[in-house]
Amino acid sequence: MSDFNDSLSVSSSGLRAQSMRLRILSENIANTDTPGYRRKTIPFELDRSANDDVQTISTGRVNLDQSELTEIFDPSHPMANADGVYEGSNVNVIIEIADSREAQRSYEANLKMFDQARQMSTSLMELLRR
């Protein structure tokens, strides 16, 4: 049964990591028009459990993208300087949507792996009962 537990552990760590990634991506998309907002990224890290044979992943600290903020010309904006320019965000919605689709697909793959391991475990228990 240890192999079933290991597979459930691996897929659940993937589910947690992709869930956190989707949360960060949704924050980025929600703040696309927020002046001065910097895009957030979250790295995945290898997390060795007590069993060295099983490698799960976890999320690291949230990082801010240090690329330049876009300059927007709007003299009527309250944050505009004397030249009528203010700093927007560095979020590119197309990149965020593409990343969110990738994270969603990865989440679904981990969910299917979790479900398959659970079904195999249930089938094994039914066979052992006979």
Rank of each mutant, 00 (worst) to 15 (best):
F4V: 06
F4M: 08
N5T: 11
D6W: 01
D6F: 02
L8A: 04
S9M: 11
S9D: 06
S11G: 03
S12K: 06
S12N: 08
G14H: 05
L15G: 03
R16P: 02
R16S: 15
A17R: 03
Q18E: 11
S19W: 01
R23F: 00
R23C: 00
L25K: 02
E27I: 00
E27T: 02
I29D: 08
N31W: 02
T32L: 14
T32D: 08
D33I: 04
P35R: 00
Y37A: 01
Y37D: 01
R39T: 05
R39H: 05
R39D: 08
R39G: 02
K40V: 01
T41I: 11
I42R: 02
I42F: 02
I42G: 03
E45G: 05
E45M: 13
D47Q: 14
R48E: 15
D53Q: 12
D53V: 13
D53S: 14
D53Y: 06
Q55C: 07
S58I: 09
S58M: 13
T59W: 03
R61D: 10
R61H: 05
V62T: 12
N63S: 14
L64P: 00
D65S: 13
D65N: 14
D65P: 01
Q66H: 10
Q66N: 13
S67P: 05
S67M: 11
E68G: 14
E68D: 13
T70H: 06
E71D: 11
I72N: 11
I72W: 05
P75M: 05
S76I: 00
S76C: 00
M79R: 10
N81D: 15
A82H: 11
V85G: 03
Y86D: 10
E87D: 09
G88W: 05
S89F: 11
N90P: 01
V91K: 10
V91F: 10
N92H: 07
V93G: 14
I94P: 04
I94N: 14
I95Q: 15
E96N: 10
I97V: 15
S100W: 07
R101W: 08
E102L: 15
Q104M: 12
Q104D: 07
R105D: 09
S106E: 11
S106N: 11
E108Y: 05
E108D: 15
A109P: 01
L111T: 08
L111A: 14
D115F: 01
D115V: 08
Q116E: 04
A117V: 07
R118A: 13
R118Q: 11
Q119W: 01
M120S: 12
M120V: 12
T122G: 07
L124F: 04
L124E: 00
L124I: 09
M125G: 07
E126N: 12
E126A: 15
L127K: 04
L128A: 09
R129Q: 12
